[in-house]
């Protein structure tokens, strides 16, 4: 039931889709075994709709894609990283609420 606006990224796509993109991207690093990740899923889908065209809202399954999480030293999930122009603008770990994520996205949107 993943929202149609949420792009599911692989390690292979990450550089092209996120780092080299003209628009900012939010990457939600998650895994199916992670309760808090599951809990923020619906929020991510809402944001994808609301920020369509402004910020790319994406998810990366860390079980299937170990390289990118390794590169960013991610050892806790959910971790959400906001990228712009190939750089990290902001990042947050844990089941944070929509209000906090909106404040984060509005830095670049």
């Amino acid at each position: 039931m993943a929202g149609e606006n949420v792009k599911h990224l692989t390690d292979a796509e990450f550089e092209e889709y996120v780092l080299k993109a003209d628009v900012p991207s939010l990457v939600d690093f998650w895994a199916p075994w992670c309760g808090p990740c599951k809990a923020i899923g619906p929020v991510i889908e809402e944001l994808a709709e609301e920020y369509a065209g402004k910020v790319q809202i994406t998810k990366m399954n860390v079980d299937d894609n170990p390289t990118t999480p390794g590169k960013y030293s991610i050892r806790a999930i959910p971790t959400l990283i906001l990228f712009k122009g190939g750089e990290i603008v902001d990042q947050v770990t844990g089941a944070v609420g929509k209000t906090q994520l909106v404040a984060m996205l509005n830095k670049v949107a």
């Binding site: 309760g35 808090p36 599951k38 809990a39 923020i40 929020v43 844990g94 089941a95 944070v96 609420g97 209000t99 906090q100």
Partner: peptide, 30 residues
Amino acid sequence: KGVVGGQVLVTDWIDNYPGFPDGLSGSDLV
């Protein structure tokens, strides 16, 4: 302030909440 569920969200498995004879994960209970 975050998402509903609280600390139970991070509980792997709950075997002592009545009504769920096989147990269930914290996030499923939430």
